[in-house]
Amino acid sequence: MQIDWWTLGLQTINFLVVIWLLSHFLYRPIRRTIEEREAADQAASQDAQDKADAADQARQEYEKLRAELAQEQNEREAAFHKSMKAEKEKSLEVARKDADALLESAHEQIARDQKQALENLKSHVQGLATELARSALAAPLTAKAAITAVTAYLEQLPQADFDDLKQDIHTDGGVLAIVTSAKLAKPEQEAWRAALAQRLGEEIALVFKESPDILGGAELHFPHAALRFSVAARLDRTAKAMEV
């Protein structure tokens, strides 16, 4: 085997030229393109990152603003609630004072009315008492006056009623009781017997009874009826008339 040194030298030079050729027309353009592409990608990535950062910052600012608004809203709500509570308490206080004033006024009015009513009642009672006293003391009911009043009553009594009284006293041994507040003396009893015998007949049976409750005057108690000419009867009649 023989080595051609010219060929060896030329091939060495040729390969060095190949190195230059590929380096100049292949590796450099491709590397430059790749680097530019990577730079563009990096720039795009950086731009995207910047936009993401800006969006994140905007989101943080939004969150911060929202938190501030929420806090402000809470503070306003708290202040509003506080003012409402104060207003409510103030209104309640005013209402309470008004109610107290009304209540006090009502109490005073009730007290005045009560006092007035009491005064009126006292005056009325006084008037009643006066009227009762007047009626009770209008004509003194002595024994003689009582006999006169009974006799006059029987005189002006309608005949039918008078007959009923007589029938009542004469039926089954009836007794007519003369009731007085104090025990009658003998002459007074005789005066009663005489007056009643003249009007009702001699045969009637009389008894005399005492009852301090009638206060004065006299009452005739038939078996089934009574004629009252006593002070108590006057007072009863006056009281019944006052009730009306």
Binding site: D4, T7, L10, Q11, N14, F15, V18, L22, F25
Partner: peptide, 17 residues
């Protein structure tokens, strides 16, 4: 300078590249 077939082929390859 003798130009061998290998050198000529290499030149052709270089021209193609």
């Amino acid at each position: 300078v003798p130009i061998s077939r290998a050198v000529a082929t290499t030149w052709a390859l270089m021209a193609f590249m």
